[in-house]
Simulated assay, not measured.
Amino acid sequence: MFKKNYLVYAVIAIACGAAGVWASLHSNKAAPAAAGAAAAPAAAPAGPVAALFQQKLKDNQGVEQALAQWQGKPLVVNFWATWCGPCVEEMPELSALQGEQAGKPLQIIGIGIDSPTNIAEFAEKHKIAYPVYVGGMSGTDLSRQLGNAHGGLPFTVLIGADGQVKKTYLGRLKFDELRADLASM
């Protein structure tokens, strides 16, 4: 039974990784900004960002957290999994970026598409410098709502303080591009 489950997970992991690589080569597009979004801050985010802020997910310690605590701040939301090679490769750079942003309003959060046990063990081993939440398989649905049409990982969403999706990134992040995008916000 264990070998059968292992094989299924391995096939899913390979398929998701391949989809992520393919999609990153074909669609690193900026999300259209809402007209007038820079002129006046929105009272509350709408659509998929509102759905994100309605989530209550367990952190890597198993404590349920409301994602609404991050509303009103610029966010980098990174969807990842412990079995996703490109996800794991970019996490130290995301941790370093969070450290660079100390004292600034930007917040990075990770939503793991994995089991609570795997995420807790991974977070402890790798000392991630930003909050990590357990999205499980429903995290994939949330990433799709935020623009991840292919369902690949890693998938990262840049959300402005106004609650608008500024840009999405499918595949391993190019940190020079992300820093430039953050500087333009």
Rank of each mutant, 00 (worst) to 15 (best):
V21L: 09
A39H: 05
K29I: 10
L52A: 01
K73Q: 11
L7G: 03
A183K: 14
Q145T: 02
A120P: 06
Y169S: 02
I128P: 05
Q71R: 11
V134W: 06
P154A: 01
K174S: 12
R179P: 12
A33K: 12
L75V: 04
K58T: 06
I128T: 10
N60T: 03
Q69R: 13
Q55L: 01
E124A: 14
E124L: 08
K73S: 08
A68I: 04
S138A: 15
Y6M: 13
T117G: 00
F53K: 01
F79N: 10
G151H: 06
L7Q: 07
A50S: 02
K29L: 14
F122M: 03
V63H: 06
A46N: 01
A102K: 15
K58D: 10
A34C: 02
A35L: 12
E64I: 13
F122I: 05
R172Q: 08
L142P: 11
V76Y: 05
K3E: 07
A102C: 11
N60H: 08
A149C: 13
P41N: 04
I113H: 09
G152Q: 03
L52P: 00
G147F: 03
A35W: 07
N5K: 03
L146K: 04
L173P: 02
L75K: 01
I12L: 15
A38G: 15
C84H: 04
D141G: 15
L170S: 12
A38Y: 07
K125S: 12
P92H: 07
G135L: 05
P41Y: 01
P45L: 00
K58E: 10
A161S: 14
G151T: 04
L153G: 02
K58I: 02
A50Y: 00
V49Q: 00
P74S: 13
I119F: 03
K104S: 15
A51W: 02
A30L: 15
K73N: 09
L52N: 00
P41Q: 05
A44Q: 05
G103I: 14
A149H: 11
C84P: 06
G160N: 10
L67S: 09
P32N: 14
E177Y: 03
Y133C: 13
K104N: 14
D59M: 00
S24G: 15
K3T: 03
L97F: 08
Y169V: 00
Q101T: 09
P74A: 13
M137P: 14
L178W: 07
A66V: 06
W22I: 12
A30H: 14
V134A: 13
P92A: 07
Y9L: 15
D114H: 10
L170M: 12
K29C: 11
R179M: 09
